[in-house]
Design a protein around this nucleic acid. Sequence first.
DNA 1: CTCAGCGGGAGGTCCCCTCAC
DNA 2: GTGAGGGGACCTCCCGCTGAG
Lengths: 310, 310
Amino acid sequence: MASLSDSASANHSPDDIEALPASAADQVLLYLALNTMKVGGHRYGAFLDAAATAAKFSIYSTYLEQGRNLRKTGFLYHVEPKRVRVIVKEVEAALEEGKALKTLASQEPYYLVGLPHLWQEQYPWKQGTSRIDWNGLLASEKEELEASLPDNLPQARLLNAFEFDELIVLLHTQSQIDLPSERRISLSDAMSEHIKFRLLHSGTVMPVESPLLKIPFYVLTRTTYAPRGERERVFAMIQDVARFFQLLQDWVAEKPGVMRILEVFDIAPADKDAALKELDVMLKSWADKYHKDGGFNMILQMAVGNRRGE
Amino acid sequence: MASLSDSASANHSPDDIEALPASAADQVLLYLALNTMKVGGHRYGAFLDAAATAAKFSIYSTYLEQGRNLRKTGFLYHVEPKRVRVIVKEVEAALEEGKALKTLASQEPYYLVGLPHLWQEQYPWKQGTSRIDWNGLLASEKEELEASLPDNLPQARLLNAFEFDELIVLLHTQSQIDLPSERRISLSDAMSEHIKFRLLHSGTVMPVESPLLKIPFYVLTRTTYAPRGERERVFAMIQDVARFFQLLQDWVAEKPGVMRILEVFDIAPADKDAALKELDVMLKSWADKYHKDGGFNMILQMAVGNRRGE
DNA sequence: CTCAGCGGGAGGTCCCCTCAC
DNA sequence: GTGAGGGGACCTCCCGCTGAG
């Protein structure tokens, strides 16, 4: 069973997603999970909570449609009336008192995005001084170490392991100031390690290793948390999908002024680039032609590309 | 607090969704939940399970990328290695042995979609005979009752309350034949009532009320489960969103031959219809112009409509 | 029929610990 | 470091029951 070829034989790629016998809705969930968790850095539990919140809102919506009837709503979704009541209270508290539900809120969790700012604020570095604030080294040793660091570092000094830990505690505290007191959670070791691992994994923070140092030091490498270069594109993608979904909602409701277009076609490989460019120009000139300031607000979302399956 | 105007003051509409401080990812989750649960008829728990499955797959994907390292994967998503191991086993069993994960699978749950077929199979009706198979009525009374039924009924006779219950038990059994034995659940009363309520709520089944009948009878009104007329449109919408998401995945990965277009513009109300029609024709002729059988498989997804916010 | 309450059980998310390789 | 095992807390979902209006 366990052999050297294990890692090869079980080399499932992301393409497996499309091979799974999943419905369209399942696929959307999957793409969402992959992007928010892998790229966005959200916790497993955070995604589950966000999905539950969406489902709860759906229940609440039906509850209103059914004339605030707990039992009917419960039957429709196979939920106990008791539980429906709790859900309704939760949603209403959120809508009326502005209490936050458990959502994904920002593209990345605050405890990851907030670190660069907090680090620079708490441990600033001034031009001309050493980034290493530790008396155990000679000036020459400090210079040697600093020379080994990456270029274009933010205005922040290095931290030793203890300071880094303290900073993460502070970061966690800061990330919870918006939460009601009953939902605030003290930072567990597991959570702390999760945050540290994420920061190092993304390259936002890098360990500084040297025989000169007795304990590990850490350096802030960027002013933003960015797991990959794809970050902005993923963000744009999710917003596009949300808007696309919204537009199709209107189409389903048969609202006027909404159009859905689906074109399936084959194209000669040599023509592909020219065709796409022509399409781009065509749409821009179309939008320009009809554009009129102060008119009806419109938006067009489109994606063209390789068709799979069949 | 509790007043007569409560139902009015709390008359939140679906538009509230957009007013919520939700991120794009949260909005997508919300739209998904609303459509699969309200229109699709999926249970609350089924949606949660499907979301969990997507997240599990995401974990599994990372697990492979990290060289099958339980601990690292756990740190990345704040999950215990022990739990990661269970999740990995679950996903691998699904991929390799074809065991079904808990997904939304079909647009509607099988126990709703399958009913019309099962009813017609188990309790068929032949032209010329009475749809009411009960000796407690005179022939004239049967005719009178049948005359009160809707037109265009499927080839199935009426059921009394007991037969209806039995049919639901059978339906539940049938819906579980694909599941491994350990995941099969016996039909609980709550579940049974949920299914009955859904069927009646959607109009697929209608109660037959008459002073002539001592116990309730039920009639099958359609050959397909269809909660609303929007059914096909919602189905198409979710597929569109999934494909759109897939296309943008390629765009994020900077694969060649993929294009994303976002046009924001205003339009004079009088021009709107003409502009949309022009766009439709324009795209079709563009696709026709470049279409070449046997060429590179392409697909274009587009939605235009009212822009909100701002 | 609706709403209300009280049980129990299973499973999942979290927390922490030790021990062998 | 990693895998594997132990413990326990808490919550949610799911099931069943009874009683008050």
